[in-house]
């Protein structure tokens, strides 16, 4: 079991990671997500022992490392899948996968499982991006690590490939029954593959929870906006509900928040009605997305929200509409300050 407490490190005078704490179950997949430069890759390198840490402790099953006792990477039994795959160009696929293995059967096992056994005698340079990533994953898992670190494993691949490979990797990790930390800057990837998600901002872990919680109950505007489209409408909070332009909506708020709040709405929390007498908004713009339409809707008080509708509902800009809440769960509201 991985246990990280108070991990901090930086390069020179700049702090890159600050007071990072995490505990990871034995076969849990945690996704770490955040914008470029938030320190996620650095955390992986620290866990693998590739960079020294300034303070804090890291322990995994048999070893324990801190700032004064840096366990070298080769002693950590931590596997890493690199953004650029890092296959050794002078070795064949099979030689790559059985790099430090005493038992080559394990290499064949994983090559079979990931559908790469036909390529075992090929050099990495002849493989496509997706094949390289499968080999890199096979190499990591064949070495039976106690923890797998994946550093943006899909960022160098085509969009079409990303979707299917995402599930292949997740399935392989679950088959191996190994704990994994998966770093990505793609929120959709983070939400779909993680058992839990950690959201990072400026080197700090600001929310750590299961995907649904992170998405529907983000701790602040940044998390809300980073994980998906978010619109806000103003309202007064009274007795656990917010009075807004589109009605009274039950809300969850952080402790101590009261008075005027920003209620967060996702585009699919609402629907648009056209043929009703009443209206509370006006279409500002329309974007066709194929399966859906995305509309910008202006409310009378000046707020504007984004609403996603089915592809069948086409509305012209400038049209008056009635905006209605369809979600039944309470929504998140942030204090205005």
């Amino acid at each position: 079991m991985l246990k990280v407490s108070g991990l901090s490190l930086g390069y020179g005078a700049t702090t890159v990671v600050e007071d990072f704490n995490i505990e990871l179950g034995d076969s849990e997949v945690l996704t770490l997500v955040g914008p470029t430069g938030c320190g996620k890759t650095t955390i992986l390198h620290a866990l693998a022992g590739l960079v020294p840490i300034d303070s804090g402790e890291i322990s995994l099953n048999s070893w324990h490392a801190d700032a004064n006792n840096l366990v070298p990477p080769e002693k950590r039994n931590v596997g890493m899948v690199f953004q650029d795959f890092a296959l050794f160009p002078h070795l064949t696929v099979e030689e790559n996968v059985s790099f430090k293995l005493s038992d080559p059967a394990r290499a064949s096992h994983w090559l079979d499982l990931l559908g790469m056994s036909d390529f075992r005698h090929k050099k990495p340079s002849t493989l496509s991006g997706g094949q390289k990533q499968r080999v890199a994953l096979a190499r990591t898992l064949a070495h039976q690590p106690a923890l797998v670190l994946l550093d943006e494993p899909l960022s160098n691949l085509d969009a079409a490939l990303k979707d299917s490979l995402r599930w292949e990797i997740k399935t392989a990790l679950k088959t191996a029954g190994v704990a994994a930390i998966w770093v990505t800057h793609d929120q959709e990837e983070a939400l779909s593959v993680g058992d839990r998600i950690g959201v990072l901002q400026d080197g700090k872990l600001i929310q750590l929870a299961d995907p649904e919680t992170c998405f529907s109950r983000p701790v602040n505007h940044f998390v809300a906006g980073f994980l998906g489209d978010a619109s806000y409408i103003r309202g007064m909070l009274t007795n656990g509900a917010v009075k807004t332009e589109i009605g009274e909506i039950s809300a969850v708020v952080a402790e101590g928040v009261q008075g005027e709040v920003d209620l967060m709405l996702r585009p699919d929390d609402m629907r648009l009605l056209l043929d009703s007498e009443a209206s509370n908004g006006e279409i500002l713009w329309a974007r066709y997305e194929g399966a859906t339409w995305l509309y910008g809707v202006a409310l009378a008080n000046g707020d504007s929200v984004q609403v996603r509708t089915s592809h069948e509902q086409k509305i012209e800009s400038g049209q008056k509409v009635l905006l209605q809440l369809t979600s039944t769960h309470p929504l998140v509201a942030f204090g205005r300050d």
Binding site: H45, A48, G49, L50, P72, P73, E74, R76, N77, V78, G79, M80, F82, Q83, D84, A86, L87, F88, F99, K100, R139, T140, H143, P145, L149
Partner: peptide
């Protein structure tokens, strides 16, 4: 050279 290949070798258990 990118560092990742040497890093990969090390995480796979090879000494520096």
């Amino acid at each position: 050279q990118d560092a990742s290949q040497v890093n990969a070798a090390r995480t796979l258990g090879m000494s520096l």
